[in-house]
Design a binder for these strands. Sequence first.
DNA 1: GATGAATGAGATTTCATTCAT
DNA 2: AATGAATGAAATCTCATTCAT
Lengths: 228, 228, 228, 228
Amino acid sequence: MAQDAQRPAERAKRLPRAVREKQILDAAVRVFSLHGYHSASMDEISDVAGVSKPMIYSYLGAKEDLFLHCIRREANRMLEAVQAGIRPDVPPDMQLWHGLRAFYGFVASHRESWVVLHRHAITVGGPFADEITDLRGKAIKLVGGLVVSAGARKGLAEQVEFSGEGLAAALVGAAESLADWWLDHTDVPDGVLASWLMNLAWLGFNDLVEGQLWRPREHDGEHGADQA
Amino acid sequence: MAQDAQRPAERAKRLPRAVREKQILDAAVRVFSLHGYHSASMDEISDVAGVSKPMIYSYLGAKEDLFLHCIRREANRMLEAVQAGIRPDVPPDMQLWHGLRAFYGFVASHRESWVVLHRHAITVGGPFADEITDLRGKAIKLVGGLVVSAGARKGLAEQVEFSGEGLAAALVGAAESLADWWLDHTDVPDGVLASWLMNLAWLGFNDLVEGQLWRPREHDGEHGADQA
Amino acid sequence: MAQDAQRPAERAKRLPRAVREKQILDAAVRVFSLHGYHSASMDEISDVAGVSKPMIYSYLGAKEDLFLHCIRREANRMLEAVQAGIRPDVPPDMQLWHGLRAFYGFVASHRESWVVLHRHAITVGGPFADEITDLRGKAIKLVGGLVVSAGARKGLAEQVEFSGEGLAAALVGAAESLADWWLDHTDVPDGVLASWLMNLAWLGFNDLVEGQLWRPREHDGEHGADQA
Amino acid sequence: MAQDAQRPAERAKRLPRAVREKQILDAAVRVFSLHGYHSASMDEISDVAGVSKPMIYSYLGAKEDLFLHCIRREANRMLEAVQAGIRPDVPPDMQLWHGLRAFYGFVASHRESWVVLHRHAITVGGPFADEITDLRGKAIKLVGGLVVSAGARKGLAEQVEFSGEGLAAALVGAAESLADWWLDHTDVPDGVLASWLMNLAWLGFNDLVEGQLWRPREHDGEHGADQA
DNA sequence: GATGAATGAGATTTCATTCAT
DNA sequence: AATGAATGAAATCTCATTCAT
């Protein structure tokens, strides 16, 4: 009898904290990406995570904290992915090209992360606006960095009239919007999309209408830029 | 004080329906833009509007309907502002330029409208997605017209590798995203934004890093980008 | 201009009070019968009546009063209908028969009245329980009266063990339940239903299983009791 | 006082779910029976149950579901009580008699259950109509069995003019209606009610007014109604 | 470590009713 | 006589959060 009472509950395995935290964060990212911050409920998160609510509160704090943890983790993942894709030893246009491809790749394979970061984190504001702005700034700055570094070699940075960050935001928006447009035009291959964007960004309409085209070159036999 | 005494009835003045509806919509746009759809409360909207909640429900329906009314009104306002800004008798690049100026002018003077349309309506999804898709579709068609007409003059239309509509989608996304970025960088004047985007779209990074710049000209019947 | 202002509203005809009251009561009975007292809304009643709500309040008072007016009017109608159907100069079984037919006839042609009286008035209770009980009692007493008067001739009234009212309630319930059953067995003609009930009530199972049957007789060449 | 001090926690004792569900259902039946479905408020139910509203929603669902749970529980209770009262080894009239006694016994001791089932569930209609139709159907089948078996012995089944099921429906309705009448005439003992109905059903008015009476006998293997 | 049980607070929505014209 | 305009009050339901075990 005493033994009976002391036997720990069978289905509640004692997992190390790190594992539980990952379960919870994964579930939270999924639920936040589906419903947004406000509509996501702690109940659903705990269900999806397979963990009771008190555990969430004990490990990751209240809803706000949990959301913060989510966006921090996903933002870091994205930054790392993009940084890993960039080769510093290639010409600026190829750097931009690689960055864009890495970015697209991340978004494609981590759609939920991207939705949380881009769609929802921006909207919430309020209690942790600063944090969000910071994170978002970092993300945009990364892409912006490419622009700036590309420009730096040629003196664009000195043209105070331009903001690398602003242009990066524009580029990201263009990429997104094109992705949306893609949903209704699935016959276009994905490499073509990236190529369009690169052409638009690199050459501009003016050159395009003149018949010019930008195409990725093999630079040293390594990966990347192999679309038709 | 004398004025105070002259007011016929301190509250419950019987105003015609149209007036109340405007009051309510104005308040709703403000509150939605501040807190987002979910966090905005009907209580706050009714307070700001100076009208009791039952009036809102009676005139504009439930929260969802109210939000829809807001989106539609603001979308129409924005489209009208942009369309009014475009002059059909100038070269394509100048048309695009005017459109962009009108767009950023609108965002500058109707910040709340833009926040509701772009930040919040997109996030909530569901019943509002169609409305936003519509709006964006109209914008894309508008820009697409310019792109195609610009390209037609130079034979771009024959380059099957490119889609005017796809490029327009990208351009619209870029404009939106830049407007969004602007919300957190209010020190930049609106004309500058339009100029950035115009340079990016028309010249491309390639030309920009070479130090070229696109600048609006006085209308003289010629087409733009005369430094290529 | 002065004439313009003074012209009475075109669609709000000045009808005499009695007409308006009838419109309102008719609408109220319909709406109450459809949704019950609590779910019926004054808005719907005013819509159906084609009369504005303030008129209802001015003519027939608040919701409770309105409901009272309804059940009073309908109860009186029913009582009158049943009383008119009964011939005092025929044998007791024929009196009961005529009463039942008159009652059925009323329910069939005034379904809404009956629903309000039987289904809804009973349920509400609360503020006007007494009034309702009274009215209901009157109605049941009428049928009960037939039973009692039939019994009086033969001494049933002296058997204190029986309550005419109680038996009447049972009869009404039987009639109703049979009517419900009828909905799923529409091939049975209505005269047969009344006949069953009469047989059950008059002869009882005991006689029925012995093969006896009660049938209405022509008593003096007048109407009634002519079913197959 | 000493007891007061000994109570471990004045509120929020963690009771197992089953206990709370019973508390809630009991309270709900009481409150629904008092005010009817629409006027009953979840607040009052939660007060009477001594449980907060969220528990109700979590355990038994929204108001509709709660009401359904009530109906189902009480209907089952009633059916079980009646079925338990019927002895299969006695003549049909005695079976009917026992069933009626059990029914009125149940109504007497579970007035609230009956009020909910008969007065309120019927009135509201909509999602509850099926449930009530079901209950009545079961009751009709039960009684129908008796009627048919009584008739079979005497050849009633061959009289195509009659339907055992139809008569059973009428009888069930009579029993219900009499029980309802009883609610306003509580001075009559329940055995008397059963006796009235039994006399009406078995002997019919015709015999009653002649002074005959049906009375239960000790079971002796013979069938009933021996004064016809 | 882990959770079922429990709730305060606040959201949306509806309705009977009255005022001003 | 007649009504559009207006609202206080209350109903249902949900959710983030914590306690007791």
